[in-house]
């Protein structure tokens, strides 16, 4: 599936994912502790610099991801401005942009496989206590496999609808889509069990 990883490879792609996540956590804590306008401005400039460092394509792709924030920035500035505290509005806006921006940078420069490896490492201690992480790993793989398949089925149903209707597809296509999901769950459970399943200790797996 198409991930949100950057279209261009950067040097940061090679850095360990765990370190990037740790740094992001610290940076976010720092941003929320920082109350000065100058500090927030500097922090925002640093984040902006990081977006620009790998070149224009990277910066354009990255800053586009922050688009959803602009309405909130507008609300913050207008609202605080009306109350006569534009400085507070600016601090909050900059903090929002820097925090989301920094997190977006980590997402853009970390491959999905590396992220999953971090999860696996974090979950490793659980295994020592006898908790199986197998279902989690299988579950993630299943979603990666079936989310695009279901989305394709949804698009298919929408075209089947449009082929016979002048109106936009209604909620009614959600029914066959959900039925597909339920039936696929049954089939894939069979496919899992046919190859050993989650537990294979002499138990007839009747449905």
């Amino acid at each position: 599936m198409l991930a949100l990883t950057s279209p261009v490879r950067t040097r940061a792609h090679g850095w360990p994912a765990g370190a990037k996540l740790g740094a992001l956590g610290l940076a976010t804590l720092g941003l929320f502790a920082l109350e000065s306008l100058l500090g927030q401005t500097l922090a925002a400039l640093v984040v902006l610099g990081l977006f620009l460092a790998p070149g224009r394509v990277f910066a354009a792709a990255g800053l586009r991801r922050l688009r959803a924030l602009w309405p909130f920035v507008a609300v913050l500035l207008v609202w605080n401005g009306i109350e006569g505290d534009l400085r507070e509005g600016a601090i909050l806006s900059l903090r929002l942009l820097s925090a989301v921006g920094a997190a977006t940078l980590v997402t853009m420069t970390t491959r999905l496989d590396d992220m999953i490896a971090v999860i696996r490492r974090l979950a490793a201690p659980l295994r020592r206590f006898g908790v199986s992480t197998r279902p989690l790993e299988l579950g993630m793989a299943l979603v990666l496999r079936f989310a695009p398949a279901l989305a394709a089925r949804g698009t298919q149903l929408a075209s089947a609808w449009r082929a016979r209707s002048a109106r936009r597809p209604s909620w009614r296509i959600v029914v066959p889509l959900a039925i597909t999901a339920l039936d696929d769950a049954d089939h894939v459970a069979d496919a899992l069990r046919a190859r050993g399943g989650l537990i294979d200790e002499g138990r007839p797996n009747g449905t």
């Binding site: 599936m1 299988l138 793989a141 299943l142 990666l144 496999r145 398949a149 696929d184 089939h187 894939v188 069979d190 496919a191 899992l192």
Partner: peptide, 8 residues
Amino acid sequence: PDHQIIFP
């Protein structure tokens, strides 16, 4: 085959 394939 779509019922059988589990992985991405």
